[in-house]
Design a protein around this nucleic acid. Structure first.
Lengths: 181, 181
DNA sequence: TATGGTATATATCGTGACGATATATATGGA
DNA sequence: TCCATATATATCGTCACGATATATACCATA
């Protein structure tokens, strides 16, 4: 799933600027699909424009920078549908947190506790935010599904970490004892 | 977490070749942290060698290509410890599957069912594999923790999808009805 | 028997993603 | 007043990723 296709996807939900596409990948349901930055979005939109998969209208705003609103063309809409028909790629994760947990035995117990507490705080904040979003009765079925999916995963993560953190802290103590003895 | 640091991490568990590092990120507990390919590993190892963070020994094998076994230097081990002290970056996900679910209303019910069934098959296979790995009583605490963490997440995903897939299939029916009427 | 797929093993190359940085203005809080 | 945040676009260098090349051995299947 390249950035161009992701932009086409957001634009099916309505016209948007590059800045608004970025926000959709931060707050909205797209935020649970993946993150993308400006360094990917603006070149992608420029290329979509060259390929006539989107059109632009420039707006001059007072007190704000100019805004370029992009709209899907019918060719762009068709290309998205083609992309959805292609084989689904496996999910990809990248967890800096898990990498650190892999080396719990090289960390001091206090450093490890801080890492786990930080992670729990992030998870609990995400869970709280998603529980509020779950109250929206007028959201489309796909958004409700994705929010619930993310909520289920965050809860599973938080529950597992709370139930099993003692195992890691125990392991992190051992090398220190060995050094002390 | 760049590829160089990831390679240093695997090498703390014992000397390894680039090929063996790749395998560690496919099968072992590192597989749940992130994926990396040869195109990232070999340049990273070459750079680590130049910076004297690892050393190499080349082995000639019979019936197999030559093998380059890399070992951590003390500078390499210290650099890994420094990296573990740096602030933990937030997890990153990239789900081609969720992207498709976001556009369930643009898919035929049969195409949607196939996508969900495929996803369930992948999840159930992963769950079955992890349940076997959970029986290993001699694995280090960190590996047991990570395997259990991955298992908890996969189970949460599978359970949620089974319980809520009907919502999406219902939504995918609607446009077809609209076209038919 | 031949063919094709899988495993072992290293390496490169082009495309594209990512993070940092630049530019400009307005608002809100310390 | 000063700094951070929000709005808005854009570029640039570095790094990651996927595809491809090369070479051999082994196993299954047609």
């Amino acid at each position: 799933m390249d950035t161009k296709t992701l932009c086409l996807g957001v634009l099916t939900q309505g016209d948007a600027s590059g800045y608004e596409i970025k926000k959709a990948f931060e707050d909205g349901p797209f935020g649970h699909i993946q993150e993308i930055g400006f360094g990917s979005i603006y070149p992608a939109l420029a290329q979509l424009l060259r390929e006539e998969l989107v059109t632009v209208t420039q707006y001059t705003q007072e007190g704000r920078p100019d805004k370029k609103i992009y709209s899907l063309t019918s060719a762009g809409r068709l290309l998205l549908l083609d992309a959805l028909d292609e084989p689904t790629e496996p999910d990809k994760v990248r967890s800096d947190f898990l990498f650190r947990m892999m080396f719990a035995h090289l960390l001091s117990p206090s450093a490890l506790e801080v890492m786990i507490d930080d992670r729990m705080a992030v998870l609990n904040a995400a869970i709280a935010g998603l529980q509020q979003a779950a109250d929206d009765q007028f959201a489309p079925a796909s958004e409700t599904f994705i929010n619930g999916y993310a909520l289920a995963i965050y809860r599973a993560m938080a529950d597992y970490i709370e139930d099993n953190r003692y195992q890691l802290v125990g392991a992190s103590l051992m090398p220190e004892r060995a050094v002390a003895e």
